[in-house]
Design a protein around this nucleic acid. Structure first.
Lengths: 345, 345
DNA sequence: CCAAAAACTGCAATCGAATGCGTAAGATGG
DNA sequence: CCATCTTACGCATTCGATTGCAGTTTTTGG
């Protein structure tokens, strides 16, 4: 396809009508206003000249950019490109493009979204919310239509799409219990991120419901969902002297960090200690040993976020109407080689 | 930071000047035209009101969007987020945002860039070029300033930044030869993509320079740089009955596909057959066995592409001036566990 | 056959910022 | 002290499309 700088005025001339008529003829919303034959003539002229509406001119007038922003904490974690791809497919059909903002600074949680909002995105899909994140408000009046995805927060009143982390941890805990584990440790994510909090609480809850204990020394927290944090936390766990036969990592990267630390200390996974992750990120089924984890449907989450965003954008009632929905997608246990019965059994 | 819908007119009123003066005072290019004290008064007013220029209004007038498009073949291959991140850091400082377009359809190579160009990006970073890709031209006159990265093509006259694939294959071949391999197979990438062609040619050239033969049955081609393609190609290789002790994959994913097929047939890597990849993508050092490959500096390539783009965008001479540069970054051999001396030695 | 209503289409303002051009105020100089 | 040149600023147009309003034509109905 070829982009020209053909203007609506030229199309109008070609069709022998006024630009306003041409505008209405070309806009599906207003096509009915203009005589059908005229509309066809305009459409033909537009086609012939290769007319493409100028997005800036249109946006300036209509105050809409057909652009949606998406903020992710970290593009290098392969789950976020998945999320992006899902959202992109939902939105592209309706003519929307996605602007990405990456960043996960708790001190300045809206740094990424700020740039996007400055660019007048029509909506914002936030995948990097912190517990206390607030939305950058337009000083004028209305906030940008927002959808929370992946992470949630009560401090932003917006529809949210996430994984049912509680259920996911349940799958993991029950799996380990069925294998015979009773002394299970948890390396929790940051406690200013919903997933970190929920997974930790779920861990405690499920352990108790299995009649198992969760001594404080078997729960350590990290400052980020990263490999390096997992390595450090695993060391703390081992150095505490506490006994345990399995580690529930708050996500795959943290669990990968455990792999590193355990390997360093000649502790075998899963023979000596079982390790589990969370997310089922790409290639995690190929690491050594293949990691038992819980699949989080990131692509679907992104796609759903895109659809919800579309409904926000097309709903005429600006915000006041439908109350925010809260969707939780079902996780799936992926049993692989990083879990086995405890050494004693 | 807060976005307001404060208009330049309001700033001008607040400062007691005309909008044109306010405009000039706020624009670094023209600040010198206006009295310094006035300029400061305007700047203060803008600050006080929280003025942010409206990107659409500005863009409409100046015909620049401060947006650069980047097209990648596949966001789910982790090397492309890396590339993106590199470009993003280079461009963000100068106020540019990146619009991503993903797609790798040879039949419609410019599908992704079409959307971007329709959105009036100021420049285009293409990472998904095919050998015969042509640039979507503006019907008017000038093409969009373009930088080729990762893949190159002669059919687009633009600066290019890529990896020195020839040298990279040399590192691999010499490594295998040093281990004692003489019967080495190559699974080539698609031959309508520069990397596929160059790596294949380089493989032949380096083998010959090592005094080794490259019988045609030991070179198979794929239709994409994907795992599934690698699996299929590896099967063809094995089914041909030809003897070989090592496989040089055109990239990491293809080599991963070899892992699968070889495992399926109980052939051990590297004991029976050595396998090598290309790219050193994330987590490839953690697969089983850790893959010997060649590091391609994607982040740096992206960063460089961003810088070259900036120089294109800021050079006043529109295209006619500096001739396209062609940069090749140096790859680095990563020796890991997927290569070993051949079985017989 | 005429009045009223409906159906089309054109006019002109508007979105917000940038900029060529003209002009008034101040500086310089002879 | 007046002519000339700067320096600073304002006026008005422009970018390309959308849209309220008004005007014209056609249709409908009585």
């Amino acid at each position: 396809m070829v982009l020209s700088s053909v203007t609506l005025r030229e199309v109008a001339n070609e069709a022998g009508v006024h630009v306003s008529t041409a505008s209405r003829a070309l806009n599906p919303e207003t096509r009915s206003i203009v005589n059908e034959k005229t509309a066809r003539r305009v459409a033909a002229a537009a086609e012939r000249l290769g007319y493409r509406p100028h997005p800036l001119a249109r946006g300036l007038r209509t105050n809409r950019t057909l652009t949606v922003g998406i903020t992710v904490p970290d593009l290098l974690n392969p789950v976020f490109p998945l999320l992006y791809a899902g959202a992109e497919t939902s939105l592209r059909d309706q003519g929307y493009s996605l602007l990405v903002g990456a960043g996960d600074d708790p001190a300045n949680p809206v740094a990424a979204s700020g740039i996007l909002i400055d660019r007048h995105v029509d909506g914002l899909i936030m995948a990097n919310a912190h517990i206390h994140s607030s939305l950058p408000q337009m000083a004028s009046n209305q906030p940008v239509p927002t959808v929370l995805v992946n992470r949630t927060t009560d401090s932003i009143d917006a529809p949210s799409i996430a994984c049912d982390d509680h259920a996911g941890i349940g799958l993991i805990v029950r799996h380990l219990v069925e294998l015979g584990h009773t002394d299970i440790a948890h390396i929790a994510g940051p406690q200013d991120i919903s997933n970190g909090v929920i997974r930790k609480q779920a861990f405690v809850a499920w352990m108790h419901s299995e009649g198992l204990d969760t001594p404080p020394e078997l729960i350590v927290e990290t400052n980020g969902f990263h490999t390096a944090e997992g390595r450090k936390a695993c060391k703390r766990l081992l150095d505490s002297g506490a006994r345990f036969t399995a580690i529930v990592g708050a996500n795959d990267l943290i669990a990968l960090g455990c792999y590193d630390t355990l390997a360093e200390r000649k502790i075998k996974v899963p023979a000596d200690i079982s390790v589990t992750g969370f997310d089922d990120m790409a290639f995690i089924d190929r690491v050594n040993p293949p990691m038992t984890t819980v699949l989080v449907p990131f692509y679907e989450m992104g796609a759903l976020a895109g659809q919800v965003m579309l409904s926000l954008l097309t709903s005429d009632d600006s915000g006041a109407g439908t109350l925010p929905t809260s969707t939780r997608l079902r996780p799936v246990l992926k049993t692989r080689g990083s879990t086995a019965p405890p050494a004693g059994s």
